[in-house]
Design a protein around this nucleic acid. Structure first.
Lengths: 159, 159
DNA sequence: TATTGTTATACTCTATAACTATA
DNA sequence: TATAGTTATAGAGTATAACAATA
């Protein structure tokens, strides 16, 4: 059972068929991606989830809070806290429209736009770093298949 | 009430270049995979992370707690709580070896083995369900690329 | 009555540091 | 001193339900 493995002092751990589990692999891959993220943006006051929200508001100013939340699969209660924090940081502007005063429409402040602009390059550059061990073609395939699986853009009914 | 169609009343949200971000896609994919998981195992007292730990202990009985934790990228403090819970549930057995009494060696109890055996099929069957929208070939490619990216099994130094 | 968002609570996972008991 | 694991604390993310204001 004991083949000459890579780590002599570390006991070898057989993962068995669980390596065929998409859920397991997604978790391990996400840990690696986050590792890249935080290593690259070390010291910056920036978290992946928050930047994504700012990014999408920047591209779609004036849409309702719930619309953003559903699209990014963020729960309403969590979205409230996220938005409140960003408002406190002076990045996001909330507006209650007269035609439906239950709703909240979101847009970025000048500071918010500047924030997105400032980190845009780092964020996009990160995509290359994330792919490190794969070839350019393999990366493109991985991105494509993940989009398909997650139902983003592509063909399906992408609510 | 709103019947047919991909929601005409829902405002369209442009995600822009962030759909090329591996981190973003991994998060969206993981949400979908977890959704499958909990829908398939609805009502069962089973969480993906916990089952994975039991699974790996079952395949490698007697290894040290820290070895399992490092391999599954679980932090020591969290691992302690996970193991304590499983011991309380009568699934896991802890043993302090005489040659190094700082360490803890883990194995499954009879109940633990039975637990893994009982859910094994559901867990493996889930892998097929997870892939739903992709062809068999695409699924295999996705699994392969994720393994490569995450550094699991394959070629690299898989600590 | 239904919907939009908020508040409150709780639990999981993560991060960190201080601690123990061994080595 | 260093290591294996524990304890304690804090924060983010998620889930849920009850709630207010509005439709």
């Amino acid at each position: 059972m004991n083949v000459a493995g890579p780590a002599y002092d570390e006991e070898a751990v057989d993962l068995g068929e669980i390596t065929g589990s998409l859920g397991f692999l997604l978790r391990m891959a996400q840990l690696k991606a986050f590792d890249f993220f935080f290593r690259t943006l070390d010291g910056e006051n920036l978290r992946p989830g928050e930047f994504t929200v700012l990014w999408v508001i920047n591209l779609n100013p004036g849409l309702r809070q719930g619309t953003f939340a559903r699209r990014l699969k963020i729960k309403p209660a969590h979205m409230t806290k996220l938005v409140a924090r960003m408002v406190d940081q002076g990045l996001v502007h909330r507006e209650i429209p007269q035609d439906d005063r239950r709703s909240v429409r979101l847009s970025l402040t000048e500071g918010g736009s500047a924030f997105v602009a400032r980190y845009r390059e780092k964020f996009l550059h990160l995509h290359l770093a994330e792919r490190s061990d794969l070839t350019v073609e393999e990366s493109a395939t991985l991105i494509h298949l993940l989009k398909r699986y997650a139902g983003i853009d592509g063909d399906g009914p992408c609510l």
